[in-house]
Structure formats: C-alpha cells, structure tokens
C-alpha cells in the first residue's frame, strides 16, 4: 500500500539558465497529504509547475510511477497528475457539472461526450467535494470556497494517483481554508490518492498533513513528518525573520514586539494575560512587582473592576475595560516605569 508514487532526485528548477532552486530530493508515498511550505520567491510555484510537466527542469529527475514526467506526452501525463491552479479562469457559461465533466477528458472520445460510467464518476466527485447541490450553478455565481471545491472535484474526476494544488487556500477566509484542507485530508484518507499542495497556512499544514516539504531559498528541500521537523527545530531555521518567533509547542508564530519600557504588576489569571497582550503591543513589558513597588498595576480577577492603578500605594483608578485601562497606563507611563535590569519577567 504505502509504496512511493513520486520520486524527485537531485532536481534543479528555474527558467532558461537561471536556477531558482537546486539539489532538491523528495518522495511522495501513496495516500499521503503533503504540504509544500516556503517563503515567497523560494520557487514553490516553479517546483509545482516542474512536477506537473508545465516547464522543463534544468537537471535531475522527476519520476512518477517509475516513469520520467518529462518523457510522458500530454495524454499519458493527464492520467497520472491532476492539477488545481491559482489562476482565476473565467469560463463563459460553464456550470459546476460541466467543469467536473471536463475532468473526464483524458478518457472521452473525439467529441468529448460522457458515457454512463463517466457520469457516475462525475456525480461521485461532486458528492465527495460537497458541491453536488450546486451542480447546475454557473461558476461565476459561486463563492471562492465553492469554486475551489468545484475545481478539486474536477481533479478528482480526472482519476489520477496524484493531485497537485497550487495554494488552494490563498483567497479563502479561515473557515473555508479549514474546510478545503479537511476535504483534501479526507480525499487522501479515503481514496488512496496522494495530494501535494503549496500553502502559507503553516498551522493548518502542521495539523493536517502527513509530510511537509520545506523549500529553503535556493534549496535544498527539507522533508519529513510535521512532528519530526518540529523535533529537529527545522522551522526556526526556515523562518528566520526579525520580530517573528516560532513556538515549537503550539506550532504557531509569535510576533515579538520591541519593548521600550517596563511596568510592575501584581496579579495573574486570564485578565492578566489580556492586559499583558494589550500593553505588549504598545511596547510596554510587564514585570513582577516587588513588595517595595509603590507605583504599580494590580489585577484582581474577582473584583467587579479587575484592573487597578496604584500610585504611592493608593489605588487612584479601577477599570473593567482593558482598552481604557491601557490608555490610562500609557498616560502615566513616566510615573510607572521601572528601570532595573534584574527584574523577573512575569509569566
């Protein structure tokens, strides 16, 4: 079952004589969902296009089912790889059913007419992608998410062992992104097809894919299961940017704000976390209050107004809104600021 469908060996990709990325090697096992990640300009799209056979490779090999992709003609390749592109094609008058039907083209005759078996496959593909109820709708009348499902159904109807999608979630809102990713996960699980998609949604990719391909600038390709890559700290190296930190535990990026001043605070709990977030955005870091800090903030989660501002040990203001309180703190910042370097960061 788990044989390797696609092999990439020592591949160089690019245009003409310009190599975008080289020394790429990877595999796609059958029935796996694989996400290709990488910053803009690293050559994700070029890699996808090279695998699809849309553009020549500059060196190395791409083997699908032990045949070299660039040796296959259009007809043979159309039965191995189905694609979903980012291009927004406008097909005049086309409805969902027709589009999915065109997915059967590699198998139909000269006039492109669908036989009974083709029609069943088309219906099943629409059903699986949850777009069957829209089968008579024009493509132009669909939402972005529905359009994407229709094109995925087209790729399913093409009945190939490998489906390649170029940023299928790029134009979608968050619920639709999750839905499309889950749909692809489901297809990989139930049909045994392999799916390769490029994406920028690292958090979804970590949760849903079997394997990640991380494309470094200029190569090589780092591949492995999400967990193994986390173990190897692969993401920190990958996304080395100022102001962004990758949190291995959550698989999320954290924005690092530049902090200019420190303010002492006493308290804990959810309200405290919210206050810390809001102040951190404004460049104020919270440190644990020492007993002798007479100017400080206090968070008391049980009080009706949990946020209090103390000057000279006197509570001068209490608020129940984080926004109002933060503005008050910023106004009194010069008074509240604590200088010491040895302060403990409060967690």
């Amino acid at each position: 079952m788990n044989k390797n469908l696609l092999h990439i060996r020592n591949l160089s990709i690019g245009y003409g004589s310009k190599i975008v990325a080289g020394n790429l090697s990877a595999i796609i096992p059958s029935g796996e969902l694989i996400c290709l990640l990488g910053s803009n300009g690293t050559g994700k799209s070029t890699l996808m296009r090279s695998i699809c056979g849309f553009q020549p490779v500059l060196g190395g090999l791409i083997l699908i089912d032990n045949q070299e992709v660039h040796q296959l003609n259009e007809k043979e390749l159309s039965k191995q790889i189905a694609v979903v592109l980012t291009d927004r094609v406008v097909v005049p008058n086309a409805n969902v059913q027709e589009l999915v039907g065109y997915g059967r083209s590699p198998y139909t005759g000269m006039l492109g007419r669908l036989n009974a078996a083709d029609k069943i496959i088309v219906a099943r593909a629409m059903e699986q992608c949850g777009i069957a109820h829209k089968k008579d709708s024009l493509l132009t009348s669909l939402s972005d998410g529905e359009r994407q499902k229709a094109f995925i159904a087209k790729a399913l109807a093409q009945d190939t062992p490998l489906i390649i999608l170029d940023e299928p979630t790029a134009f979608l809102d968050l619920p639709a992104r999750v839905e499309i990713m889950q749909l692809l996960r489901d297809i990989a699980n139930t049909s045994g097809k392999s799916i390769l998609m490029s994406t920028h949604d690292l958090d979804l990719a970590l949760q849903l894919s079997d394997r990640l391909w991380l494309l470094q600038n200029g190569g090589p390709l780092i591949t492995g299961s999400p967990e193994d890559l986390l173990l190897k700290n692969a993401f920190q190296k990958m996304f080395q940017h100022k102001g962004v930190v990758f949190d291995n535990k959550t698989g999320l990026f954290k924005v690092m704000h530049t902090q200019h001043s420190q303010v002492a605070v006493k308290g804990h709990g959810f309200e405290y976390v919210l206050l810390r977030r809001a102040l951190s955005r404004k460049g104020v870091r919270l440190v644990k209050a020492n007993p002798d800090d007479s100017n400080r903030l206090e968070v008391n989660k049980d009080a009706p107004k949990p946020f209090s501002l103390y000057v000279d040990d006197q509570c001068i203001q209490s608020e129940d809104s984080v926004e109002v309180f933060v503005n008050r703190v910023l106004a009194a910042k010069s008074l509240l600021e604590v200088q010491s370097e040895s302060r403990v960061l409060s967690e």
Partner: peptide, 25 residues
C-alpha cells in the same frame, strides 16, 4: 468545426488546465 468542440472546451479553461487534461495545445 464540431470535431474541434472537445479541444475548444478545454482551451476555454486556459492553456495549463487544457494541457493537464491531455490536450496537445
């Protein structure tokens, strides 16, 4: 021209989709 209808249907999807569906563009 009726015999070109399959090619035309695929060409309407754009060159890349057409070629991916087995058409010699």
């Amino acid at each position: 021209a009726l015999f070109l209808s399959k090619s035309l249907n695929l060409m309407a999807l754009g060159d890349r989709y057409a070629s991916n569906l087995g058409l010699k563009i």
